[in-house]
Amino acid sequence: MARVTVWNEYRHERESEVVADIYPDGIHAVVADALREGGHEVRTATLDEGPEHGLTENVLDETDVLVWWGHAAHDEVRDAVVDRVHERVLDGMGLIVLHSAHYSKLFKRLMGTSCSLKWREAAERERLWTIEPGHPIADGIGEAIELEEAEMYGERFDVPAPDTLVFTSWFEGGETFRSGCCYRRGSGKVFYFRPGHETYPIYHDEDVRRVLRNAVEWAEPGDGPTPEFGNAEPREDIDTDDDRTVH
C-alpha cells in the first residue's frame, strides 16, 4: 500500500464554527481516515507546521502520494517548498489535487495555465457523471455520484486537456465542469478531483471517499526503471571520435 501525506491549510476549520462542526479535527483528518480505510500508511501536514509547512525533504522522501487541499492561503506557501514538491512529482511522486487547490501555486506550475474557473456558493445539487467507467479511479463507482449540496465550479476551466477525463459534473444551476482530470508530469501522475468545499460534508460521502482511495492507488509510483539523462555511452560498438562538438 502507498505511503500518503495529506496536506491541508487547516485555517477554515480553526476560524469558522460552520466548518469546525463538519471537520472538527480538520479536513486533512477526514481525508486521512478515508485513505487508512483502504490500508494506506497515512500522515498529515499543515500550512502552519513550521517554515516548511510540514513538507520537509524527509517527509517527501517517505511519500509515494501527496494529497493537497488549499483555499484561502495559496500565497503563503513558500516558493522553496513548491519547488521541492514540484521536483518530487516530476521524479515520480503521485499528486492528488482537491477542490480549490486548483488555484495552488503547485498545480498552476504543473499545468502552466491560470487554472481559473467560474464559481458560485448556493448549496446546489451536483451530479458527477462517470464517463470513463473502466478507469481504475472509477472502480466501484456507479454511473454517477450525487451530492445534495455543493459549491458550483463552471467552465471554462483553464487547464490543459486532461490525458483522461474520468468524471464530469452537472450542477443544479445548469453549469458543467471537468471534475476528474488525470495528467502525467515527468514520471509522476496527477489527479485533480473537484468536490470538497469546506462548508459541506463532501469528504464524509462514501463514493467520494472511494474515489480518493482509488486515486491514491492509481497515482502510486510503479516499479519501472528510473530514467537516466545526460551524455550516454553507446550500447553498440561505434566510432565516438567527432571533433565537431561544442560541448
Rank of each mutant, 00 (worst) to 15 (best):
residue 101 A to I: 03
residue 229 F to E: 10
residue 60 L to G: 05
residue 112 G to V: 03
residue 161 A to R: 14
residue 179 S to T: 05
residue 243 D to M: 09
residue 240 T to C: 12
residue 157 F to N: 03
residue 63 T to L: 02
residue 210 R to L: 15
residue 232 A to G: 09
residue 119 W to I: 10
residue 12 H to N: 13
residue 15 E to A: 09
residue 92 G to Y: 11
residue 114 S to H: 11
residue 24 P to E: 09
residue 49 E to D: 15
residue 111 M to V: 01
residue 228 E to W: 12
residue 133 P to E: 12
residue 160 P to H: 09
residue 185 R to E: 08
residue 62 E to V: 05
residue 110 L to W: 05
residue 56 T to Y: 07
residue 118 K to L: 13
residue 132 E to Y: 03
residue 83 D to R: 04
residue 73 A to S: 14
residue 205 D to Y: 02
residue 92 G to R: 13
residue 168 T to M: 14
residue 244 R to D: 12
residue 187 S to M: 14
residue 166 V to N: 03
residue 155 E to D: 13
residue 95 L to Q: 07
residue 14 R to A: 12
residue 240 T to F: 06
residue 137 I to W: 04
residue 15 E to F: 04
residue 60 L to H: 04
residue 133 P to F: 07
residue 4 V to I: 10
residue 120 R to V: 14
residue 156 R to L: 14
residue 197 H to C: 06
residue 32 A to H: 05
residue 247 H to W: 14
residue 233 E to Q: 12
residue 235 R to H: 13
residue 2 A to P: 15
residue 90 L to P: 05
residue 16 S to A: 11
residue 91 D to H: 13
residue 205 D to R: 00
residue 137 I to K: 01
residue 57 E to H: 06
residue 105 K to S: 09
residue 206 E to W: 01
residue 188 G to M: 07
residue 86 H to E: 14
residue 213 R to C: 05
residue 232 A to K: 14
residue 155 E to W: 08
residue 126 E to W: 02
residue 19 V to G: 08
residue 73 A to M: 11
residue 216 V to I: 08
residue 175 E to D: 14
residue 127 R to M: 11
